[in-house]
Nucleic acid binder design. Sequence first.
DNA 1: TAGATTGTTAATCGATTAACAATC
DNA 2: TAGATTGTTAATCGATTAACAATC
Lengths: 206, 206
Amino acid sequence: MKTIKISEAVVRRLPIYLRFLNELSKKNISTVSSQDLGQKLDLNPAQIRKDLAYFGEFGKKGIGYDVDYLIEKIRHILKLDKVIPVALVGAGNLGRALCNYNAYLKDNMKIVAIFDAQASKIGESINNLKVKPMEDLAAVIRSLHVRIGIITVPAVEAQQVANQFVEAGVEAILNFAPVIIKVPGEVRVHHADFTTELQSLAYYLD
Amino acid sequence: MKTIKISEAVVRRLPIYLRFLNELSKKNISTVSSQDLGQKLDLNPAQIRKDLAYFGEFGKKGIGYDVDYLIEKIRHILKLDKVIPVALVGAGNLGRALCNYNAYLKDNMKIVAIFDAQASKIGESINNLKVKPMEDLAAVIRSLHVRIGIITVPAVEAQQVANQFVEAGVEAILNFAPVIIKVPGEVRVHHADFTTELQSLAYYLD
DNA sequence: TAGATTGTTAATCGATTAACAATC
DNA sequence: TAGATTGTTAATCGATTAACAATC
């Protein structure tokens, strides 16, 4: 099996395809062309075809893509065909907001544990989950087989939380704190930082 | 004046430089080299030098960059040298969380108005701001000279809110709803979607 | 068959990195 | 002066787009 390295840009587009395909499926639309997709998602049709072709021949010439079949395929590629347990540290407003997305992520991912360092937060209930103390982190992550960690603590605490996640065996981290965190090469980190996002927008003002 | 088009990738890195430079400044570190920066931010030093060189000669050969001077320059490039008024629609958990970043964005940007369509939310106080009804959006945006709009409403309402923002004269939009919104070419939109971010992370699990 | 659309190759475009003269 | 580091050019690398044969 020859393994072609898939670029990050491609991987980032797959969930966007998936989301739109789910909408189509809900509307009982059974077929879609790369042209349709491109128009709705502001992407080049050739790019969409190429992205998908990295993983297989999912379309039919002259017809397009079968919506439900493509959903199934992309879910498999993204490893979303079985539930991935996720843990979150930082039970502030942002943490709470993300927990509410649990419904949105229904089949795919599930936030199964919430932690906070502040004593006053411990035991509080968020979306039927009790906030746990940091001391329990490693044990809980191991027993629930958590694979992805989300960080929504203040910047100064983020690296420390990341270390604990890594130590506990988490495979990937989504960091919302406005700081670059460092982890060993085998752990994947994505940064989702609201402040830098907003500041880069300012550049485009006249 | 020859205008070189600055790529989005460059613009996205500037706020990251800025944030780290601010940290250095707080620690009274007065000079930094592209090598230092690259190491801390996981970026290639040549790339950092090139990014900055698009805008001027900010460094000193053999020495590096003066931290405070570079902060000033980047703030100017990003148009963050005067306060940019921002409005937010959607007073849910996420909206509330973002409002708390007001402190973080201190000199740069300020959320000056919050709106919600739900009657029960109107009048509620978030960070000293009273939630206003959607009917007031256009008038408030104009009177407060709001330039950037943030969308934190459910996906189905996002496009409609975007339309209202555009109509009211907002120049840029940061959309947190999990849907691609369409706006006229002169309005800049960035998508900050937690769900796609998390799903693309799943790809990198073993 | 005629029309549509894929998968894929080739061409283009753009971004990153290496290398080094200039110079503090 | 010797060492360090910038600004910038050239080389490399990678991603996007165009084009089209294959085929439903």
